[in-house]
Amino acid sequence: MIKLFLPCEEANHVCNKGQYKEASFLELIKLKIHLLYCNACKKHSARNTKLTEFMNKENSFKLTDAAKKALKTQIEKQLEQ
């Protein structure tokens, strides 16, 4: 039988995995159920999601060093031709 009620520790683990899109659909359902009755985890989950939003916002405005390096190489190659 499928265990639908997660302990807090496991709920936090799923919540963290969820921030990186590594939680399965079933795990997310179980997390949602847990959040219905656990206020502490609900609060933690909201903070965690907010942190992801911040990090995405920060990341979304920058190119990585590797991407910049690739662009530089591409330009140099083109200039040599």
Binding site: F61, K68, L71, I75, E76
Partner: peptide, 24 residues
């Protein structure tokens, strides 16, 4: 000066693009 494009403009161009296409 194409050699300075990446250093000078890539973040700016990326910033401009990501708000319009929403995909890295």
């Amino acid at each position: 000066n194409p050699k300075s494009w990446v250093d000078r403009y890539s973040d700016y161009l990326y910033n401009y693009t990501i708000t319009r296409v929403s995909n890295h």
